[in-house]
Amino acid sequence: MHSFSEAFAEAASLLLSFDPALLEIVSLSLRVSLLAVLIAALIGLPLGALLAIGRFPGRNLLTIVVNTAMGLPPVVVGLVAYLLLSRAGALGPLELLYTPTAMVIAQTVLVMPIIAGLSRQSFVELHSEYREQLQLFGLSTRAQLKVLIWDARYALVTALLAGFGRATAEVGAVLMVGGNINHYTRVMTTTIAMETSKGNLAVALGLGMVLLLIAFAVNALVHSVRVRAERAAYV
């Protein structure tokens, strides 16, 4: 198909030109998604650990809820976030709709269950290995969470990456609450959607390749860290 060769050329020229508009979009994408993943990790990792080791009523129900939420459709999250953040909504007075902050919130909601759900599995495995030692040493739940999060860190990075991938790749939620406003809330995916709708398929595909390239770079970086850890047998 002719679009592909054009798209490669387009991607190359986009990258080589260091087009400031492109850089702006890429950097906003990264910053919104990284911040969302950071906040989601701060909530999701302790939640995942708590679901793995905690004993409290409703734990199984909460686990099911988290696992279900791992598959939340972005447009649904976007719609709910829109309804809440709209000036007519419950959080309207915050004036957050159509801001990068709103996009961070929506992506955090999308990503947090993924991080919590995936990390829970890692914590379950690690905890079966550590349970007796942690208990014998009389560690408080909080101290146990710290040990588990630290010692599972290489496995947890995979969960964070999955969350980051989801955040950078989704378009439904950021489009609804961000509005794809030029120079303000326009990110990679909303630009791709917009260029597609303008029939600029080569540009859209080129941008898609840039997105993939970034995802590749991030994965390569994390993988190399992991491989180094594996070589030292810490995983």
Binding site: L126, E129, E132, Q133, L136, F137, G138, D151, Y234, V235
Partner: peptide
């Protein structure tokens, strides 16, 4: 409990933290 165990040395069947 923790107070007693701090005076005991225990080796169970999974006695180490292999990721450290």
């Amino acid at each position: 409990g923790p107070a007693v165990m701090s005076r005991c040395g225990v080796v169970m069947q999974q006695p180490l933290m292999l990721r450290r």
